[in-house]
Design a protein around this nucleic acid. Structure first.
Lengths: 224, 224
DNA sequence: ACAAAAGTGTTAAGAATACACCCATGT
DNA sequence: ACATGGGTGTATTCTTAACACTTTTGT
């Protein structure tokens, strides 16, 4: 190890998902610098020596979009993308993370980069290869929710069975059968019915549930 | 971005699997330097600026263990491990890759680091957190072979159905039912029977098969 | 009384599992 | 003729998928 190695620049990028009106949204910022000035992009930034990639992620989210680690019940590393020869900033390697949260209030004063949640169906043109990273994250999320309870990270503390079904439908991008869905969910034994009902309009009130565990579990079987 | 960032050291580590006598083996080297001098470890090394992580991986494998990229029909990125505060060399981030190959002849003169394939059941004490990385790789491999054809990367060009079953059993770590296995494999339509038979001993010769495609495919259904 | 979402069971089809004997060969 | 691994089919269980009406509430 007598040689001195010059390492590539290390960066982190974040794909933050939340549900808005039954649609999956992703958090974007508007770039204020070249390259891709003015284009929308995933929040990201440099990973400084001494920081783990998760620490760098937390720093980027706090400073650039005002999202605190506590806002994200689930954070998962996705993949590490080589941007050598593709990133105009130069040789870089970027570690991408996915974070899930309930609907967040973003402070308007967070930065001039106007962090904004965009529905997946209406994404603007994106800088770098960020469209690919989002696609990758969505695939991962879809497979995750089918064999774990990770959907909990997108849900409020209490929710109706219909809201839960809509969350799954938003993530999976396809409709599910109501009866099979409820049967399956109850059989999985991850939901705790509360004593309370949610009253929405001129119809029967819906029983509210919570998750028995607010952390990862592997589950079995498919949904519908 | 007027600031100058000092990035962590970036390294790559490789988990190279091959099958030996129906057991999954992993390629290790003996460390010649501190830290962990004399301990066994995964082959790994620095990622220089200008190199993608895959290029760095290829360089490490060629120079340290004499394995060429062409020897590995399947290479997959596993996970990026933060070694900040854990790696005595200092702040580092390491991208781990998994590679699959058929049984390789390692040149004895490759280095003083004596690259050696160890059966997973008889691993020595390992440097760093390399035991965890191997465990992670094995989990990934197990899940991969159940929904893709990636087992092809561990098999010779022609093989008998029993050899294929043994490969699955070695990876999954459990016995499979012969009739169900054969039924399933043939139904998947990924195997091409040849005209030839493999004659081994005092018993009926076995039909030789090849894979129809020597690249990735997603498959459906479970094995036994 | 009606509109609107909540809630509830059964049946049919397909997939996974368990299981035992005959076949071809060399000695 | 016997020892060895190759090769084959069926019955059972479990999982998935399809499908329509009653309940509770507000207006």
């Amino acid at each position: 190890m007598a040689y001195v190695y010059h390492s590539p620049i290390l960066t982190v990028d974040a794909v933050i998902f939340e549900l808005v009106d039954g649609e999956l949204n992703v958090l974007l910022i508007r770039r204020t610098n070249e390259p891709f000035q003015g284009a929308w992009a995933l929040p990201g930034g440099y990973n400084a020596a001494g920081d783990t990639t998760r620490q760098a992620l937390a720093r980027v989210l706090t400073t650039k979009v005002g999202v605190e680690p506590g806002d994200l019940p689930l954070v998962e590393q996705l993949y590490t993308f080589d941007t050598i020869g593709r990133d105009p900033r130069g040789d870089a390697v970027s570690v991408a993370y996915m974070g899930l949260c309930q609907q967040l209030e973003l402070q308007a004063d967070d930065s001039v980069q106007t962090p904004t949640f965009y529905p997946l169906g209406k994404l603007p043109e994106l800088a770098y290869d960020h469209a690919d990273i989002i696609k990758y994250a969505l695939e991962r999320l879809r497979s995750k929710v089918t064999y774990t309870n990770s959907i909990f990270a997108l849900m409020p503390g209490r929710f109706t069975m219909t809201q839960l079904q809509q969350a799954y439908e938003a993530v999976l991008g396809r409709p599910l059968d109501k009866r099979n869905f409820r049967k399956k969910m109850l059989a999985l034994d991850v939901l705790q019915p509360t004593e309370d009902y949610y009253q929405d309009g001129a119809h029967r009130p819906a029983l509210l549930y919570t998750f028995k565990k607010q952390d990862f579990q592997s589950l079995t079987g498919s949904l519908d």
